[in-house]
């Protein structure tokens, strides 16, 4: 009985930490994807992980700072061999959870030519902090959903979107730096809508 109560409490804690529910169909996408990432870190496991983050490694030190106020990190990322493998209606249903005034859509880019969409949502907290972050990046052959639950300081967000974890190795002629090239979306698309 006690075990059942503890288990139920754990489930409720986990559910409340996540708040925003990942689309149920995502679980099935793993079977279709060429590559998939499925990260669910919350509660004790997240703190467990943060305890072994090194202060000497710059990325890990930044991660430690970011994780301090977090309750959960959920990432689902899929890369498909062909287009149309995921259901847009499920993404729309997921997006429908991110309603104002709790959530604000702070950025969104859309490319009608490349079919690449990316959106960033913030949940505002007191004191100018961010109470949660959701990123939806949907491309014809790739889908990534990130849901970060908990308090993020604006400066930590800058760290995260700055130099965090940029791989250093290049592959000879194929690699070009971001300064030499425009970002991946086609530049002449009229469908882009910066916000």
């Amino acid at each position: 009985m006690r075990i059942a109560i503890v288990f139920l409490a754990g489930m409720l804690a986990s559910a409340s930490a996540q708040e925003i529910k990942m689309p149920p169909g995502l679980e099935r996408l793993g079977a279709k994807a060429e590559e998939s990432v499925d990260v669910t870190l919350d509660g004790p496991l997240l703190q467990f992980a943060s305890r072994v983050l090194s202060d000497k490694d710059p990325d890990e030190a930044r991660a430690k700072k970011i994780v301090a106020g977090l309750k959960g990190i959920y990432v689902r990322s899929f890369e498909f061999a062909k287009e149309g493998e995921y259901n847009q209606a499920e993404i729309d249903a997921f997006r429908a959870q991110l309603q104002p005034p709790t959530w604000s859509r702070v950025a969104g880019v859309k490319s009608s030519r490349g079919g690449e969409n990316a959106e960033v949502y913030f949940k505002m907290a007191t004191g100018g902090d961010i109470g949660g972050l959701v990123v939806i990046a949907a491309e014809p052959k790739e889908l990534t959903i990130v849901n970060i639950v908990g308090t993020i300081k604006p400066e930590d967000l800058a760290d995260l979107s700055g130099e965090f974890g940029i791989p250093k190795l290049d592959f000879g002629a194929r690699r070009q730096t971001s300064k030499q090239t425009p970002p991946p979306a086609p530049p002449k698309s009229k469908g882009k809508e910066p916000e």
């Binding site: 990432v37 870190l41 991660a63 959106e119 965090f164």
Partner: peptide
Amino acid sequence: RAKDQLMLALRITGSKLRLVQERI
């Protein structure tokens, strides 16, 4: 292992945020 997952999650998040920033 949990740390590796955490770092992977943060790197993916960072890369997507950069993507949005760069396009804007």
